[in-house]
């Protein structure tokens, strides 16, 4: 069953065609990675799915209905975290709940639940400037999860982190994805790192550049946790690499 569907979506900025003829579905229970060289419009695609940018051509369907405006079933995790420096961790995580006019007690409880889930219990009263990059991205994850989106969107979520921190955060995302208490039905991650896509995703969309088109969809059928030393893992990486090159 598909949660979302993009039909022949294209986007032009002035005369430059950024995306063209994108048709894809977002299925229940799937982790989708979008890979492509920089400038292939993958971040634009993610913002079209989020309803932050409207497509020039084609249509976006949410549960069969045409999407207009911000997509209420999604929440975004940003490359540079997008935290408010003047709010505590708790207040940052509550931001989306505040917007939904959820009562204070329920807001506290729900934010606390996701703060706990991302391993940030003990940091509630801290400000973002006190935190390392990895901890800031955990706040970004908790904030997105707290609004309980059906579809979690992540835009290069690990690329501002050092290599070791990125490893631990990928692991965290996999744990959250497998956690039955976290009600996310689908996940879409934009990345330029092929290994990251193969490690996390069920399906990898490979985009070409100028304009961004879907070159191929690669189903990754490896069981989790996936090991980079597996020969099959490397076959996927090689296959996607050659599609991008």
């Amino acid at each position: 069953m598909d949660l979302m569907r993009l039909e022949n979506v294209g986007k032009r900025f002035d005369t430059i065609s950024v995306l063209d003829g994108i048709t894809m579905t977002v299925d229940e229970g799937q982790f989708i990675a979008v890979v492509g060289p920089s400038g292939c419009g993958k971040s634009t695609l993610l913002r079209i799915i989020a309803g932050l940018i409207s497509p020039t051509t084609g249509q976006v369907l949410l549960a069969g209905r045409l999407l207009t405006g911000v997509n209420p079933e999604t929440a975004l995790v940003f490359q540079s975290f997008a935290l408010l420096p003047w709010l505590t961790v708790q207040a940052n995580v509550e931001l989306g709940l505040e917007a939904r006019r959820i009562l204070v007690a329920e807001r506290r409880r729900r934010a606390g639940f996701y703060i706990d889930k991302v391993g940030l219990e003990g940091y509630e009263e801290a400000y973002p400037r006190e935190l390392s990059g990895g901890m800031r991205q955990r706040v970004g994850l908790a904030r997105a999860l707290a609004v309980e989106p059906k579809i979690l969107l992540m835009d290069e979520p690990f690329s501002a982190l050092d290599a070791l921190t990125a490893i631990s955060l990928r692991e965290l995302v996999l744990d959250l994805w497998a956690d039955p208490q976290v009600p996310v039905n689908a996940c879409i991650m934009v990345t330029h790192i092929i290994e990251e896509a193969v490690e996390l995703a069920d399906r990898v969309l490979v985009l070409s550049t100028h304009p961004g088109r879907i070159v191929k969809e690669v189903e990754v059928t490896l069981p989790r946790p996936r090991d980079k030393r597996w020969p099959e893992f490397n076959e996927y990486v090689d296959q996607i690499f050659s599609l991008m090159a």
Partner: peptide, 15 residues
Amino acid sequence: IPQELKEMAHSLRLP
């Protein structure tokens, strides 16, 4: 004001 902050507020549907 960073673009990502505006997008964040927008996507969380802050009034």
